[in-house]
Simulated scan of single mutants.
Amino acid sequence: MRTFVVVCLLGLVAVTLARPESKYTSKYDNINLDEILANQRLLVPYLKCILEEGKCTPEGKELKSHIREALEEDCAKCTENQRKGTRKVLAHLINHEEGYWNRLKAKYDPESKYTAKHEQELRELKH
């Protein structure tokens, strides 16, 4: 019986190690970010959702559930489209929505451990 348990545990470890790293859902990858960023009426509700100051759409809930992990792991589970979209949104917030950007940093990265390394580069990237 002990051998069976050991074999099962080793099998589980092997399957876990062999599995490719999971990515965040790509269900919302085709959202028109330019339209949202250009329209305060669309943008502000997303920001309030993420700041836990307002209601969330399903895509807002999904985004909010992964923000801290994505920051800490440098978007390791992001699809390529999510990586590009994240840069676009962050550049817009840094360059055009400084108040919201500072509030988001205070909430999700108060010590600027993760945002500092990208902030200067994105500040120079004009959206």
Results as ranks from 00 to 15, higher is better:
Lys61Asp: 11
Glu53Pro: 03
Lys27Ile: 08
Ala76Cys: 06
Lys55Gln: 04
Asp74Trp: 01
Ala38His: 11
Glu62Thr: 11
Leu51Asn: 02
Leu37Pro: 09
Leu43Cys: 11
Lys23Ala: 11
Glu72Lys: 12
Arg19Ala: 14
Asp34Thr: 14
Glu53Tyr: 00
Cys56Arg: 00
Lys27Asp: 07
Gly60Val: 05
Ala76Arg: 15
Arg41Pro: 00
Ser26Ile: 07
Ala38Phe: 05
Arg41Asp: 15
Ser65Glu: 09
Cys49Leu: 02
Glu80Phe: 01
Lys61His: 11
Gln40Thr: 13
Leu47His: 03
Leu42Asn: 06
Gln82Arg: 09
Glu80Val: 01
Ser22Asn: 08
Val44Lys: 13
Arg68Asp: 08
Thr79Gln: 05
His66Arg: 14
Leu63Ser: 08
Ile31Phe: 06
Leu37Gly: 07
Leu47Trp: 06
Ala70Gln: 15
Ser65Gln: 10
Cys78Val: 06
Glu52His: 09
Glu35Ser: 14
Lys77Asp: 13
Ile31Pro: 00
Cys75Ser: 11
Gln40Glu: 15
Pro58Asp: 14
Leu51Glu: 06
Cys56Ile: 08
Pro20Tyr: 09
Gln82Lys: 03
Glu52Asp: 13
Gly54Asn: 02
Asn39Gln: 12
Leu43Val: 10
Tyr24Leu: 14
His66Gln: 11
Lys27Glu: 12
Asn39Trp: 09
Glu69Ile: 10
Pro58Glu: 14
Thr79Pro: 05
Val44Tyr: 08
Ala76Thr: 02
Ile67His: 08
Arg19Glu: 12
His66Lys: 15
Ile36Leu: 10
Gln82Trp: 02
Ser26Met: 05
Pro20Asp: 10
Ser65Tyr: 06
Ala38Arg: 15
Asp29Thr: 00
Gln40Trp: 00
Lys27Ser: 04
Pro20Leu: 11
Leu51Arg: 02
Glu21Arg: 13
Asn81Val: 11
Pro45Gly: 01
Lys27His: 13
Glu52Val: 02
Gln82Met: 14
Ala18Cys: 08
Glu72Ile: 01
Cys75Met: 15
Glu62Phe: 15
Gln82Ile: 03
Ser65Gly: 05
Leu43Lys: 10
Ala38Asn: 15
Gly60Met: 04
Gln40Cys: 07
Glu72Val: 05
Ile50Met: 14
Pro20Thr: 07
Val15Ala: 15
Lys64Phe: 00
Asn81Pro: 05
Glu21Met: 11
Asn81Lys: 10
Ala38Trp: 04
Leu17His: 11
Val44Met: 07
Asp74Gly: 01
Leu47Glu: 02
Asp34Tyr: 14
Lys23Cys: 07
Tyr24Ser: 00
Leu42Gln: 12
Lys48Cys: 03
Leu71Pro: 00
Asp29Cys: 01
Ile50Asp: 03
Leu17Thr: 10
Glu21Cys: 07
Tyr24Gln: 05
Glu73Asp: 13
Thr16Asn: 09
Gly60Leu: 03
Leu17Lys: 11
Glu73Ser: 15
Ile50Gly: 01
Ser65Asp: 10
Leu71Ala: 01
Pro20Val: 09
Gly54Tyr: 05
Leu47Ala: 06
Pro58Leu: 09
Lys55Val: 00
Ile50Phe: 14
Cys56Gly: 03
Tyr28Asn: 04
Ala70Asn: 15
Thr25Met: 03
Ser65Pro: 02
Leu17Gln: 14
Ile67Cys: 10
Asp34Glu: 13
Lys55Gly: 04
Tyr28Ile: 01
Leu71Arg: 00
Asn39Glu: 11
Arg19Tyr: 12
